[in-house]
Structure formats: structure tokens, C-alpha cells
Nucleic acid binder design. Structure first.
Length: 828
RNA sequence: GCGGGCGUGGCGGAAUCGGCAGACGCGCUGGACUUAGGAUCCAGUGGGAGACUAUCCCUUGGAGGUUCAAAUCCUCUCGCCCGCACCA
């Protein structure tokens, strides 16, 4: 053992651990289990600091919990299907599977260099047929349960990715992946009926107490539950038709002065058919529909509308109001039509003013806000108040009024209470090659036929040229498309869209529990044992996407009695991003530090330690090269301690049980550190302060060894201190800890040691330093016996000259004593 | 606009239940060892006043408040970050 040389010891232990499969986990009902999971990566081939951070966090927990006696499952795999692989394959002129295989290999090697304690026997790859046959199986399950359906709809189309996208995958009108502007296209597409689960997905958020609030809130917003009333308006001259609208303010029904339809509204063509306005209205609607999402939905784009020539009849007042078509109404929310109440809605007000529509006030603000008479108030008034100009409802408050109106409408058969969600069904078709084929066959005679389970997997044909413009690519694989109908045996065509990769990642945590199982997606007993994931760790970017889809999947599987948990992830840790020089690490900024670079220069232990020490896991982390140096220095410092100890003579008669003051102090430091590190990892997830506590212990050891001459040092105590220090360091710097453990002459692996308990007796102190405050200001300190009472503290405090001076001639009003901490003497 | 979060030395951060603000690390200053130091060790390091001793004052974005005591609780306010957003 000479000098700290991570380049030698790290690979050595990594090989040893791998050979011994020391991190393999199997079902053991006699032991408490713990499932630690980090979001699996897309295999880009390049590990970045964000990866290193999430794996370091997960590994501390996994190693710590194993030492705590848990049966820990800590798996890793590859989210391998998807557009980036396909695009990379096209630009590198290789097939996506070759490209993926190579990337996995590279990335796995990089991961292994970090010394993360994965059970590699559980490795999975979503692009392997062994895996995606079950992804297809889940599609069939959804189909059987009526949760997968096909419909023609205007969908989000990314022209750059040449595929459609789910709503969750469009951010402010841009593709979440390539940031191209998303267009709307009419297409026949497959959807999952996630909206059937909206209420449960929302309600069960409250059971996820250990999820960050911001993630819960983001999901709440996304689901967007809204209670209100659906009101059907009759249309003048169209007795057959009715026009339903959704409103949260049924109390304003008498204030409706117009109606607006979305340009896509199916009723629109019929309303204007054959009229002199037809051409103008339809052209107007077409123009708006051509506008991009951004143009149309940005708040500053002006609200425009056009009269259709038709009138709707207010179901309660009978009043006829004009029906317009307008750009500010969107087809995908509510009913695609709104009632215009300009007096009590900001948007309606703006729209009405610019289109010369009347404004009719029907809600009066409460007297306090409206002034004496309450007759004149500023419009629009969007708050609640008392109903006016509303016939029999006059005088009711907004809340009771809305209920009364809903009731009345219901009696008349033209309205009902309704809950509306912002959440839309999950569009899962993708017009790309590199994904799991949707297992469906179209037969002219039998219609849409799901592929029988026994015919799974529907294999992807080997990739030919993918660079062509033909969409979807699978449609030009004749041998793939042509098939026979499973029902009638006649000629049929396969579905040529593939599934959204978010489906692959919606159940992978179940596959880890029995990754090689051949006849079912996962072993039910294994899943029942390991699930739920106790601690999930990943980036905040999946707050809605992956985390919502996985929750939905789990609920469906629960309903199908395939799993016993309704929620997949008990605890969630959204780790912060890694920054450098005030910006996210990125190639364009030129501020990228790669894990490889760090491992080569300082070793994985240093890199891990820095990442964990620089900030708490959920906060953004500022990369600092000098900080890395500091962590490296610390490890070298630890190393030297062990090295020096090794050279000193062993055993000895010293330390036979009588400890001196310095020894008692060192022992106290040791047990205080055990306590702090345990609490920081287990309860607070604050690895940064756990590490700083270990640093303090190391400083205390140095102080002791400097303060006490070599031959007088208590070797028994020193040995205990060194061993415990090594164990405490094991989750953070696993290689160094293992090497040190061996150097200390201990048997076995440090990672198999039980986590130490602290001895409360060793923490006990005989004397404590107490702060003396006078009127809340620190005026002195003193050392008193631990547990000293108020009288004694007061007496001793007054012995201090400074305190006596301050108290001179003053009367003591109060004395507050915080035992073993502080006395505050209040004087006047 | 709605919702969530954050604001502490030169920097990253600590202060866990209202009880010594600034742990730990970086950086910086001085010193030791050394041919050398980007190795290592020692000392110092929030700002100000002061005989640079004692001691005192100020300090957690800002202003108030509650309290014996506030980074921590309350009110207002400023700034930054994130999510959603013409959602009827």
C-alpha cells in the first residue's frame, strides 16, 4: 500500500465485486426489502454528469441500506427504443439496433467505472424482443380492457421528427425533443384512455406524501380538474341540433350575449351550409386552423371572431344570441364551444368590445366592494357576488345561484353538473421505425383485429434504409405489412405505427423483478415482494411525462389484478441539475466535464464524493474543479491515516480501558459522527452534511494524533476509530473504503459490514459550554456541569466580571434557561 | 394571471423543534518543511470601530411585527428560478 492510487484500486475492486456478484438481489421473504431505482437512461453512448449524479445518489442509498440489513434491489437497464437512436443510426449509416448495442456497451462501461452497486444480472433493454413482446402484451391488455382505441383526430405533428406527439410531449407549442414548432394534422391514431383514470391519478397524489410538492402540483395542473355545468343551447332554425358548452360560472347564464365555436367545431359547417356567409366563415375557420399552436394560443395574439349568421337560444331566458366562430376557443377542452359572458369574464369582455357585442351585468359585487348603492361597478367583474337581472334567481349568491341554475337546467333536460379535465387521452402511435410495433392487424372482412398473444412478439423487420421520406417507415416493408387475418385467415395488413417509448418505460420497474422470465411480463410473486419502488430518483423533466404514464399503467395493472400496488413509486427524489459557470453543462457552452475525465484524473470515489458533497441532492449543483480537488485531498488525507497506522506496531497493552480526556473526546466525536451520518442519510437525504461530518471526524483524528505522542496513543481506540471511519465512508467512496478495510487487516468486504450503532453513553458529556445572554445578546460563555440547574447557572454567570458589570444597578426581570445551551438574563 | 420554490461571507453551502449565524469544503493571507511546490502540515479568514488587548456595533434581499430570544413564525415588499396558462 503506497500512496492513494485510485487508478489501481478502483478497477481491482470493481472486478472483484463483479466476479463475486456481490450486489445480486433475490427474493427473501424473511428480510425487509428495499427497492432503489434510478430512472434508466436512454443509451446515447455518452455518460454525462447528470447521470453520474443520479447514480451516485442511488448508490449511497443502496449501499447504506444493505449495511442496514435490507434486502436491496438496485437494477439498471436501457430505455433503448426511440427517436434519438433512429436519428443517430440514420446519420451514422448503421442500423438502430447496431447503434444501440454499441452505445449500451460504451455507456455500461462508463457506468461500471463509477463503481455503482448494480445487480447486472437484472439488466434489461426495452428494444430487445424479449422485452418488447411484453410491451405489446400490455397494449393488448389495454385493448381488451377498452383502454386502447383508434380514432381520427387532429393531432400534434412534429415535422422534424416526422411523427405525432402526445399532448404531454408538446411544450408551449414546441416538440419536447427537438423544439420544432408542432403542426396540427388529421390522422387516424391509437390512444390510451388515460382520461378514464384522471380522477384516481389526481386523488391518489395525496397518498404520495414523500413526493416533492412541486411534482404533485405539476401533475395536478396537468390533470386540470374543473367542476362546472354543461349547458345545452338550442339553435334557432335548427331544432334538431343543440350546442353544449361547459362553464364554471352557471350563475352568469343570464349574462350570455353571444356564443363562440372553435374553428374545428363539427357543427360549424352545418350551420353555415348554403348560406351567403358560408364561404367567408369557412375560410376564416380554415385560416385559424392553419395557424400554429403558438400563434393561436399565445395570450397577446388578438381575439378574433366572425358571426356565423346563426343564433342560439338561452335555455332559461329564451333570449337569442349570435353564434360566432373565434380563435380563442379550443376544440380540445370542454365542448369546443363557450358561452360569452363579457360582463364577468376578462377574455369575453375584450372579445365583446372589439366585436360590438353587448355587455350585460348579472352579478353585483358584494356591497362592500360595490359602494353604497351597488348599482355602478366596473366591468368586467369576475368575482362572486349577488345575481341580478336573472329573473327568479335574483338575489342569490354566485355559488348557490350556480347550483340552482344547474338544477333548473337539469329539470328541463338541457344541463347537468359536469367535471372537466384538461388531461387528454394519451396518443401513443408514432410514425417511426425504432419502437415496439403496435400489435394490430387490419382485415377488410374482420376489421381491426388484435394480434393473438401467442403470435407475440410482432418483430421489427431488420432495418433497411430509414432515411427516406415515407411515413411511417414500416409501411414500406412489404413483408411486414402483408399478413393474414388471425380470424378469417384472409389477406390483411399490419398496423405500421410503433408505440411511444413512454410505454416501454411505464412498466420497466416491474420487469426488473424477474428480467429473464419467458412466459409472462413479470413474476407476480417477485413483483409483489419487491414493489413498490421504495425510492425513485430522477430528473424533474419527467414530473408529468414518465411519472404520470407509469402511475396510469400501474393502476391499470392493479385493476387487472396483476399487481398489488396502486402506485409504483413510494418516494420520489427529483435531483437537481448540474451546472458549471452559471449554465447547464452543454456542448454549445463548452462547459462540459465528463465523468470519464474525472474518473481518469481523480478516480470515481473523488467524483462521487464531490457530487454528493457540493449540494443536497434535490438542489442544482455547481460544478467546481477546485471543489473536486478538495474532495480528492480529503480522500488522500484519509488514506494517509490508514497508511501511517499500517506502519505502526500492532496490538499492545495500551488502551486497556482507562481513557484519558483526549480519548474520551475522540470517542465522543466518533459516536457523534455515526449518529449524524446515519440520520443524514436515512432521514434527511442530506449527503452533503453527512460527508462534512465525516470530514470533521477525520480532522478530529488528526488533532488527536498531533496532540498525543505516538507511543501514548490509545491503539485499541484508534483501531475502532479507523474501522468505523472506513465503514462510514463506504457508501460514498466504496473503493477506497474497501481497500482501507483490507489494509486495516479486516476480513470480508467493508460493504458487508453492519452499519454501526452509536453508543449514547459515549455522547454523554460531563461539562457543557453555555452561552450567557443579557437581554438577548451574547455577553459571555462559561463551562458548567451538564444538566446544571438554573440557580447554579445564574450564580456562575454572575461570577463573570463582565456579566456582573452589566447587571450592576439593574433589576433582573426574567431568567430564561435552555438546559445545557444558554441562559438569557432579562434586565431593566 | 394562477401555482410552487429560492434569496445566508469572495464562492458552494451549514444551522434538523424559535436558543451561540456562517459547520464542512473551496478560495484567500501568513508561516513551517523543501532545490522546488500545483505535495504536506500549522495559524488566520463575515463587515466595521477600537490601545488591533479588552470590548462594542452591524450582518441571513428590504421594511415592519410577534417573542426574553427570529435565517427560522406573521404582514407587506423587492429580486430570481421553475411549472401551467385565451382551460371557458
Amino acid at each position: 500500500m503506497k500512496g492513494y492510487d485510485p487508478q489501481t484500486i478502483e478497477p481491482k475492486w470493481q472486478r472483484r465485486w463483479a466476479a463475486e456478484k456481490s450486489d445480486r438481489a433475490s427474493v427473501d421473504l424473511s428480510r425487509p426489502k428495499y427497492y432503489v431505482l434510478e430512472m434508466f437512461p436512454y443509451p446515447s453512448g455518452k455518460l454525462h454528469m447528470g447521470h453520474m449524479r443520479v447514480y451516485s445518489i442511488g448508490d449511497v442509498l443502496a449501499r447504506f441500506l444493505r449495511m442496514r440489513g435490507y434486502n436491496v434491489i438496485h437494477p439498471m437497464g436501457w430505455d433503448a427504443f426511440g427517436l434519438p437512436a433512429e436519428n443517430a443510426a440514420i446519420s451514422n449509416r448503421v442500423s438502430p439496433d447496431e447503434w444501440t448495442e454499441k452505445s449500451v456497451e460504451q455507456m455500461k462501461r462508463q457506468q461500471q467505472r463509477l463503481g455503482v452497486s448494480y445487480d447486472w444480472d437484472k439488466e434489461i433493454n426495452t428494444s430487445s424482443p424479449d422485452y418488447y413482446r411484453w410491451t405489446q402484451w400490455f397494449f393488448l391488455l389495454m385493448y381488451e380492457r377498452g383502454l386502447a382505441y383508434r380514432k381520427r383526430a387532429a393531432v400534434n405533428w412534429c415535422p422534424h421528427c416526422r411523427t405525432v406527439l402526445a399532448n404531454e410531449q408538446v411544450e408551449a407549442g414546441l416538440c419536447w425533443r427537438c423544439e420544432s414548432e408542432v403542426e396540427h394534422r388529421e390522422r387516424e391514431q391509437w390512444f390510451f384512455r388515460i382520461t378514464d383514470y384522471a380522477e384516481r391519478l389526481l386523488n391518489d397524489l395525496s397518498t404520495l406524501e414523500d413526493w416533492p410538492e412541486r411534482v404533485q402540483v405539476m401533475q395536478q395542473n396537468w390533470i386540470g380538474r374543473s367542476e362546472g355545468t354543461e349547458i345545452s343551447f338550442q339553435i334557432k332554425d335548427f331544432p334538431e341540433e343543440s350546442l353544449p358548452v361547459f362553464t364554471t360560472r352557471a350563475d352568469t347564464l343570464f349574462g350570455v350575449t353571444y356564443m363562440v365555436l372553435a374553428p374545428e367545431h363539427p357543427l360549424l359547417p352545418r350551420l353555415v351550409a348554403g348560406t351567403k356567409r358560408e364561404k367567408e366563415v369557412m375560410e376564416f375557420a380554415a385560416r385559424i386552423r392553419r395557424e400554429s399552436e403558438i400563434e393561436r394560443t399565445s395570450e397577446d395574439s388578438p381575439k378574433v371572431g366572425l358571426f356565423t349568421g346563426r343564433y342560439a337560444l338561452n335555455p332559461l331566458s329564451g333570449e337569442a344570441v349570435p353564434i360566432l366562430v373565434g380563435n380563442y376557443v379550443i376544440m380540445t377542452y370542454g365542448t369546443g364551444a363557450v358561452m360569452g359572458v363579457p360582463a364577468h369574464d376578462e377574455r369575453d369582455y375584450l372579445f365583446a368590445r372589439s366585436h360590438n357585442l353587448p355587455v350585460k351585468a348579472v352579478i353585483r359585487p358584494p356591497a362592500a366592494e360595490a359602494g353604497e348603492e351597488g348599482d355602478s361597478f366596473e366591468l368586467p367583474y369576475t368575482g362572486e357576488g349577488l345575481m341580478i337581472n336573472s329573473g327568479e334567481f335574483n338575489g342569490l349568491g354566485s355559488t348557490e345561484g350556480a347550483a340552482a341554475i344547474t338544477k333548473k337546467l337539469q329539470e328541463q333536460g338541457c344541463g347537468r353538473f359536469k367535471i372537466t379535465y384538461r388531461l387528454r387521452d394519451w396518443l401513443i402511435s408514432r410514425q417511426r421505425y425504432w419502437g415496439a410495433p403496435i400489435p394490430v392487424i387490419y382485415c377488410d372482412r374482420c376489421g381491426t383485429v388484435p394480434v393473438p398473444e401467442s403470435d407475440l412478439p410482432v418483430l421489427l423487420p431488420p432495418a433497411a434504409d430509414l432515411s427516406g421520406d415515407r411515413v411511417p417507415p414500416l409501411s414500406h416493408y412489404e413483408s411486414f405489412v402483408h399478413t393474414t387475418c388471425p380470424i378469417c385467415g384472409g389477406e390483411a395488413r399490419r398496423e405500421t405505427d410503433t408505440m411511444d417509448t413512454f410505454i416501454c418505460s411505464s412498466w420497466y420497474f416491474l420487469r426488473y423483478t424477474s428480467p429473464q422470465l419467458q412466459d409472462f411480463p413479470f413474476d407476480r410473486e417477485a413483483a409483489d415482494y419487491w414493489m413498490p419502488v421504495d425510492q425513485y430518483i430522477g430528473g424533474i423533466e419527467h414530473a408529468v411525462l414518465h411519472l404520470l404514464y407509469a402511475r396510469f399503467f400501474t393502476k391499470v395493472l392493479y385493476d387487472a389484478s396483476l399487481v398489488r400496488v396502486e402506485e409504483p413509486f413510494s418516494r420520489l427524489l427529483a435531483q437537481g441539475m448540474v451546472y458549471k459557470d452559471g449554465a447547464k453543462m452543454s456542448k454549445s457552452k463548452g462547459n462540459v466535464v465528463s465523468p470519464d475525465e474525472i474518473v481518469e484524473r481523480y478516480g470515481a470515489d473523488t467524483g462521487r464524493l464531490f457530487i454528493l458533497f457540493a449540494a443536497p441532492p434535490e438542489k442544482d449543483l455547481d460544478w467546481n474543479d477546485q471543489g473536486v480537488e478538495g474532495c480528492h485531498r480529503f480522500l488522500k488525507r484519509v488514506w494517509r491515516l490508514v497508511e501511517e497506522w499500517e506502519k505502526e506496531p500492532r496490538g499492545g497493552e495500551r488502551g486497556a480501558g482507562v481513557l484519558g480526556a483526549a480519548e474520551i473526546e475522540l470517542q465522543r466525536a466518533l459516536h457523534g459522527t455515526i449518529k449524524k451520518v446515519t440520520v443524514d442519510i436515512e432521514e434527511r437525504f442530506n449527503f452533503n452534511t453527512a460527508i462534512s461530518a465525516v470530514m470533521e471526524l477525520v480532522n478530529a483524528i488528526y488533532d488527536y494524533r498531533r496532540g498525543i505522542a505516538g507511543e501514548k496513543q490509545d491503539r485499541v481506540l484508534m483501531e475502532e476509530v479507523f474501522k468505523t471511519l472506513t465503514v462510514l465512508l463506504a457508501p460514498f467512496a466504496p473503493h477506497l473504503a474497501e481497500e482501507a478495510w483490507q489494509a486495516l487487516g479486516c476480513r470480508g468486504s467493508v460493504h458487508k459490514q453492519p452499519w454501526p450503532d452509536y453508543d449514547p453513553a459515549a455522547l454523554a458529556v460531563e461539562e457543557v459550554e453555555i452561552v450567557i445572554q443579557v437581554n438577548g445578546k451574547v455577553r459571555g460563555r462559561m463551562t458548567v456541569p451538564a444538566g446544571a440547574g438554573e440557580e447554579m447557572i445564574m450564580e456562575r454567570a454572575c461570577e463573570q466580571q463582565r456579566i456582573a458589570e452589566l447587571l450592576e444597578g439593574k433589576s433582573v426581570l426574567r431568567r430564561i434557561v435552555v438546559p445545557d445551551k444558554l441562559i438569557n438574563i432579562v434586565i431593566r
